[in-house]
């Protein structure tokens, strides 16, 4: 089990082409937990590929002409917290701030969050609401998969053995966006329920994503499209009844479980409240900024 340190994307492609028992190591914040607890075991024929050595994976490209933020898979949470990324994708930035602790945000990467495919993934929830896509690369070429389609269940994804996440393409959406998550303590906690809302008065779109209320992050399509038509984009307002209906649709799209962190009933309730508050806050903010 040697460790490979590719220094370019080309190298990485070749390594993945040649070897099949490969472990891709990004920030390690999830992978190492499994190793430390013995639930993940490395065998001597495993090849660990250290993604940190690929500098190209940590690039950030802000392209305002095509309205796209291109985030290398190796970009870390702490790099998302402020500055131009915060301006371009505020709800992603907000989600980053809710992740773990400073130490975790130093190590963990956005690509790792997507690849891990946790139903509680904070960054993924924001990315789904932003309609971001995953750029998967291999020696065979490149393909784009919507983040919402990338995970197929808890910890399972559509990635092929010879592929890696090169970057995440995040559309830059004018308007307002927000991310909220509930945990049982005030910091450093896994989401019990989370929600991201993106409101774009320009394109008159409302997009809603939900976390920790299903096997994957959920794109709440029916709620999103109802909200899109129900919101009066000229006045940045929505009627109470319509907002209640959005909340109802959000709750219907959730399929949470009971576990030691919370109950299905509470999670269903909570995502509705989070979405309602985010929409209210967003519309108010849009109105004020006009």
């Amino acid at each position: 089990m040697p460790i490979a340190h590719p220094d370019s994307i080309e190298d990485l492609k070749e390594i993945l082409r040649a070897d099949t028992s490969i472990v891709l190591l990004a920030g390690g914040t999830d992978f190492m937990v499994g190793l430390n607890h013995g639930s993940t075991r490395l065998e001597s024929d495993h090849l660990i590929v250290d993604l940190r050595s690929v500098a190209e994976l940590s690039t950030v490209e802000l392209d305002y002409r095509s309205k796209m933020l291109r985030l290398g898979a190796g970009v870390r949470w702490n790099d998302l917290l402020s500055g131009p990324i915060e301006d371009a994708a505020p709800c992603l930035s907000q989600s980053a701030r809710t992740v773990g602790s400073h130490q975790i945000r130093t190590a963990g990467t956005i690509g790792g969050n997507v690849a891990t495919a946790s139903p509680a993934g904070d960054g993924v929830c924001a990315l789904v609401a932003l309609d971001a896509s995953v750029v998967l690369t291999s020696h065979r070429g490149q393909r784009n998969v919507a983040v919402r389609d990338f995970a197929t269940g808890p910890k399972t994804t559509v990635i092929e053995k010879d592929e890696f996440i090169e970057r995440i393409d995040v559309p830059i959406v004018n308007g307002w966006q927000g991310y909220s998550k509930i945990g049982t303590r005030n910091a450093m906690v896994i989401s019990v329920a989370g929600a991201a809302v993106v409101l774009s008065p320009d394109s008159q779109i409302c997009r809603i994503a939900l976390g920790s209320v299903g096997p994957t992050i959920i794109a709440a399509d029916s709620a999103s499209s109802f909200a899109t038509t129900a919101i009066d984009w000229n006045t940045s307002s929505v009627s109470t009844d319509d907002l209640d209906q959005v909340v109802q649709l959000v709750r219907e799209s959730a399929s949470p479980i009971n576990d030691h962190r919370s109950t299905a009933s509470y999670r269903t309730h909570a995502v509705g409240v989070l979405v309602k508050r985010l929409i209210e806050q967003g519309l108010r903010s849009i109105k004020e900024s006009v």
């Binding site: 701030r97 809710t98 909220s180 303590r185 005030n186 450093m188 906690v189 989370g194 989070l274």
Partner: peptide
């Protein structure tokens, strides 16, 4: 600061809540 409200870092709560 989000720590000033219930929900803390999760950014769940406004003063009016």
């Amino acid at each position: 600061h989000p720590y000033g409200l219930p929900g803390g870092a999760g950014n769940t709560t406004r003063s009016s809540d």
